[in-house]
């Protein structure tokens, strides 16, 4: 019968509409502007509305999420920053759009390179967030961040990150990527043990 198909389509949209209200009633106040509500609206059995009211509500990002790199430093006993970066240059070499610039530090006496960057820049407007730098850094010194709200009015003064702006403490890294951090620490401990075992044996 002509028109039956259209009616059926309308029935589908009508169901969607009604379900929205049913879900709203079922959840009550918890439906919007609560972490629980946001989680419910992105779960695989979401019904009704699934949109999120950004920026009041934000979807939590998974651990693997990557947005712009940062440099990890260890906090020294007196609060000084010890950069993990040795300025080996691998991240600058692997970076696809070549947005990392590193100046290697040289010993003023001998002129030989010492393992710490004198300067480190990332042009974050060129960065394509590929994550290669973090993936291939042999010292776990550069990692991908979770903070994606970086819009600003001035590209040159705000969006060319220097050492100052890039440096973040290990504790921050451990807080955004706990699993990766635990794995790395375990691997490091194992390596240390192996070295110790090797040196005693040798």
């Amino acid at each position: 019968m002509t028109g039956w198909g259209v009616l059926k389509s309308l029935w589908v949209t009508f169901k969607h509409l009604v379900v929205t209200y049913i879900e709203d009633l079922r959840y009550g106040k918890r439906r919007y502007f609560t972490p629980e509500g946001v989680e419910a609206r992105r779960s695989s059995d979401v019904r009704g509305i699934f949109t999120v009211q950004y920026p009041e509500e934000k979807l939590p990002v998974p651990e693997a999420f990557r947005y712009l790199p940062f440099l990890v430093y260890e906090e020294g006993p007196n609060g000084e920053k010890q950069m993990r970066c040795t300025s080996c240059g691998i991240c600058a070499k692997v970076c696809p759009p070549q947005c990392i610039w590193i100046v290697r530090r040289n010993d003023p006496q001998t002129g030989r390179p010492i393992p710490a960057p004198a300067a480190f820049y990332i042009d974050v407007d060129i960065c394509m967030n590929c994550g290669f730098c973090a993936e291939f850094c042999p010292f776990d010194a550069i990692k991908m961040d979770h903070d994606y709200e970086i819009a600003s009015y001035n590209r040159l003064s705000e969006h060319i990150y220097d050492l100052e702006k890039l440096a973040k403490p290990v504790s921050y890294y451990a807080s955004i990527r706990p699993t990766d951090y635990a794995l790395e620490e375990a691997a490091r401990a194992q390596k240390g043990d192996a070295k110790k075992a090797g040196s005693t044996a040798g």
């Binding site: 300025s87 070499k93 590193i102 290697r104 820049y121």
Partner: peptide, 15 residues
């Protein structure tokens, strides 16, 4: 070809 030599070890920032 990449990697460009200007980025490291003397990569003073430029656009």
């Amino acid at each position: 070809a990449k990697p460009f030599k200007s980025r490291w070890p003397e990569g003073f920032v430029f656009r």
